[in-house]
Amino acid sequence: MIDIEKEIQKDRRAFIKNVLSGTIAGSLLMVIPAGAALDGAIPEQIPGVRGDHSPFLKNQFVFIVDVTACIGCGSCCVADKNEYNVPDGNYRTWVERYVIDDHDEVFVDCPNGGLDGYTKPRTDIPYPVRDTFFVPKLCNMCQKPSCVQVCPVGATYRTEDGFILVDKKRCVGCGYCIQACPYSARYLNPVTKTADKCTWCYHRVREGLLPTCVNVCPVHARKFGDLNDKNSEVYKLLREPHVISVLKPGMGNQPALHYLGLRREVV
């Protein structure tokens, strides 16, 4: 039991150190603002973007979700909710759980969009489970976006650098884009009464930061990068032979969101 004693000792020392530095740092912070600007506060994650004030970036961003890596922890959903204060019951991103039994029946669920994680196994599967996996979903950032096509007032649009955004000062809240999106990525925000959806964290990307869901994913199942950068992971994944696909390719929307290891059961 000596080791445990030592551990406690060690922990106590760490704790005191923590308290001291925390207090000191905390009290210092009360007096000296650490600077509101992000420069310096957060290290740049996408090189060469911060400080670029041109309307559109030169980068060609793509998003890749690795279905084979996702553990369904829902960190991404929590981060997303934190970043945007998404009203309950609406989802900018969500994580689906697929269960396939050995009779090839597919069972999918997504309680509260995966926001609370997956803590219970499904109990309604009649046969032994053959395969099970998680599939995170978000805005597909289509190159041929249906939502932009149908918006009657030009409140939702595609930027030249590939982001599809909603102008909440102009959206009339008709809901046509919600009907038109093949991926159900959109919802009507009950607070602003305008259409809302995932933006791939446009405001973060413009600051040289990764989308918040990519930043928090502990298993690197969400990858965001620039196809113009030949050394980027996304470039390598997309340009080299991999099992990679998009959702509902038959819709012809040409998403910029790709899935690594996507199974055919996924809609």
Partner: peptide, 18 residues
């Protein structure tokens, strides 16, 4: 679309850091 919305979109608060 309203060009100045790009500015509005960039000014969304970064709430989560690293």
């Amino acid at each position: 679309y309203r060009g100045s919305d790009l500015e509005d979109q960039r000014n969304v608060e970064v709430r989560s850091h690293t």
